[in-house]
Amino acid sequence: MSLRTPLGRVRGLGSARSGTRHFWHQRLTSVAGVPLSIFFVVLVVSLIGRNHAAAVQILGSPWIAILMLLFILTITYHMQIGMQEIIEDYAHGEVSKLVLLIANTFFSIAIGLASAFAILKISFGV
């Protein structure tokens, strides 16, 4: 007989070793992603014809930079969860799955950090 509760026994199982957190965060980042993606597309279109100086001026203005940071953080987190789900569906070997999951995390963090750094550098102008 085990003293563990039924909940305690199933916690940390599943192919992701986590519960519904990913499901919920996928929804959170989706809700946030709708206005932020619309903002991003409009921003890119409005920057099309402009040279570097104009682009930097627009990207560096506080509201634009803040929204861009939110967009980047939201989608890199969202895509990390989403790609994890894809990997769990298709990668069957434990080792290959682990390698892909690690690569996914590294890629998402690298993209998020590089983009955030670029936005901050443009804003602070150093």
């Binding site: 570097h52 682009a55 930097v56 990207l59 861009m68 980047i72 989608i75 890199t76 895509m79 989403g82 790609m83 894809i86 993209i111 590089a114 983009s115 750094f117 670029a118 936005i119 550098k121 443009i122």
Partner: peptide, 21 residues
């Protein structure tokens, strides 16, 4: 979703370029 995942490379590249000369 998967295409956008790799498409973020373009977004990051574009932002880094804007932060460069």
């Amino acid at each position: 979703g998967a295409a956008l995942y790799f498409g973020t490379l373009l977004v990051a590249w574009w932002l880094i370029a804007a932060a460069s000369e």
